[in-house]
Design a protein around this nucleic acid. Structure first.
Lengths: 342, 342
DNA sequence: CATCCTCTTGACAACGTTGTCCAGGGCCTA
DNA sequence: TAGGCCCTGGACAACGTTGTCAAGAGGATG
């Protein structure tokens, strides 16, 4: 009896099952299933009786069992870096909208830029047998995904490429965007331009740096030591880097910020200074228009939507070779990038 | 044969099961289960053989089946208004962190402020048998949740109270916060103060309006027609409302914005004006410090964390009566709220 | 050497649903 | 009225896992 008690406790509080509904309605199990799934072949009268029993008992189909039987979970997993980051909110929402249109739910996880946590999350999602995965990778080796992909979990990588595994990817044109932004500063007379970016193991960080170098090279400018700083995007680190670049006998006259978090801190540092400093940031920011911040904008929602649409095309049976989509960026001049050198 | 083919197609791409692992390792099914779950009572040698088979086959436990058997999904659902809203990103992330600490995954859904969609989402989550639910309600009648709650799905409502159902709630002190913000404007000499808020069917909107009225009454100010505007937070609507209040022979000299979206638009409108207008906004905004916007801040992360902790306390067996927690807000003066009447 | 105990292992049922297949009843047609 | 067909409904197995229980091996103890 103790056993029985403990049993019912772990269960879903003794929820009614189709069997209970069938008993109450005086019909067979399968008939209930038919009603619940709106399958044809049930007389209106029977259907009514079953429906009444369902309402009376508060029955709700157990999708766990359904999933086990059907093999599809109608859910997809999204692993990103930080749901609290204003770049990922809209991305996530866009993925959700597409998922919703396909009748799927979204399971969300933040890797906090930790490769181990990324793997842990991804594998947990695979164990749940999500139908598909959208991953913004933190690590650079994703061979652990091979058995999963082989087993049929559709996968799309976003924002950064996958490491050592051949999958669909949706990226932004980090290189081209950064190059355009830096060229924009050069066009406004700057030659001493600082670059502050994210950690070098992050693909977008190095791509943007590559864009910076390309633009400088195009203009025949030699990048000096101390003009480039990659590392964590913690405000303290960015602040220190910016202040160093802006000090000394020959300070930079403009800054290029490698992502939204860097931009925010850079704006603060510049606001405290007497001499104006030009600034272009990668990623748009809310209220940047009011602050007059020139940015390279990438459409987070479009990225998410594109990735999700790719994913569902795969789930609907598309078999072509893994594709790599690159979305363009847009330069939005708002003032800070058009300041002349001080 | 056709049948077989179609069958294997719908399945998880013929993933190996414990049975396959057992066959390969030459052991019984249950022994594999024991190894997979790190249960005691397996010789190191047997364990090694099983582990090898697992690696060779790329086996991953099917959590759907596990859930069916165990009755717990180790996942919780979070239904909010819009994941893309900067207020909900941090909230969601905080919930996720707590869930993670309890070994649970987070399933996320946006209601888009549509009661029907809220219900649809919540019930879908219940069908998945999430262990618990955190809901930021869009509607005001949640009786549809009764069978679910009775069946044992722990539920916490956040930000707005539940309608006609007795559950735990975690709210912010909307009334007190708004009252303090408006009193702050009054203390700086304003008497003609406009209030622009969200739709009146949203609880926080009416609570904040109540706070506004209380502060005005405390100061002996009679609120005039045209000083209060509730409705959608679409920029166009807010803009029109703000412009109307700021025009005419006797315009308001200060605005109180009912939430972050309203604040953003209000800032834009005010920036276009010649005469300065004081502003206090409910909810903090990124970069508000640089723009000098005085706000009533509620800690979204704290709200999410508190709600999630309540939820897991329930899941761990807490049986006390449903509680209602109200978190305090903070006034952060940054300039816009301290401007004198023009 | 018999007995008991412990430790490892596996057989089996059950979780709640859906797919398959069959039975029975009603209706139409010849 | 017999034969055939269609329509509705139900019995049963299967999905992949875990809990229960029992059996067998091996060691310790009398």
């Amino acid at each position: 009896m103790d056993r029985t008690a403990r049993h019912s406790e772990t269960r879903y509080g003794n929820r009614p099952t189709m069997k209970d509904v069938a008993a109450r309605a005086g019909v067979g199990l399968k008939t209930v299933s038919r009603v619940v799934n709106s399958e044809p072949g049930v007389t209106p009268d029977t259907e009514r009786r079953v429906q009444e029993a369902i309402d009376a008992l508060g029955f709700r189909r157990n999708d766990s069992a359904r999933v086990l039987r059907k093999g599809r979970t109608a859910s997809i997993g999204l692993v990103l870096e930080d749901l609290a980051d204003p770049f990922y909110g809209p991305l996530s929402r866009a993925v959700e909208e597409v998922a919703r249109a396909h009748g799927a739910l979204l399971i969300n996880g933040s890797s906090a830029e930790d490769p181990e946590r990324e793997q842990e999350l991804v594998l947990a999602l695979c164990a749940r047998r999500v139908d598909g995965l959208i991953v913004i990778p933190a690590g650079d080796d994703h061979r652990y995904l091979e058995p999963e992909i082989k087993a049929g979990i559709a996968t799309v990588f976003v924002d950064r490429p996958a490491g050592h595994v051949d999958v669909d990817m949706v990226l932004s044109d980090s290189f081209g965007g950064a190059r355009e932004g830096v060229a924009h500063l050069i066009a406004h007379g700057h030659r001493r331009i600082g670059f502050i970016g994210d950690q070098p193991r992050i693909h977008t960080a190095t791509e943007r740096l590559r864009g910076y170098h390309a633009a400088m090279r195009d203009a025949g400018i030699t990048v000096e030591d101390g003009w480039v700083s990659l590392g964590s995007t913690e405000p303290e680190r960015v602040r220190a880097a910016a202040e160093e670049m802006l000090s000394g006998p020959e300070p930079v006259t403009a800054l290029f910020a490698g992502n939204n978090r860097v931009t925010v801190t850079a704006v603060r540092v510049i606001a405290e200074r007497e001499r104006p400093v030009a600034l272009v940031g990668f990623d748009d920011i809310e209220l940047a228009d009011l602050l007059g911040i020139t940015v390279i904008s990438q459409d987070a929602a479009a990225v998410g939507r594109t990735a999700a649409e790719h994913l569902f095309r795969r789930l609907d049976g598309a078999e072509h070779a893994p594709a790599r989509v690159e979305l363009p960026t847009t330069l939005i001049p708002r003032g800070s990038g058009e300041l002349p050198p001080a």
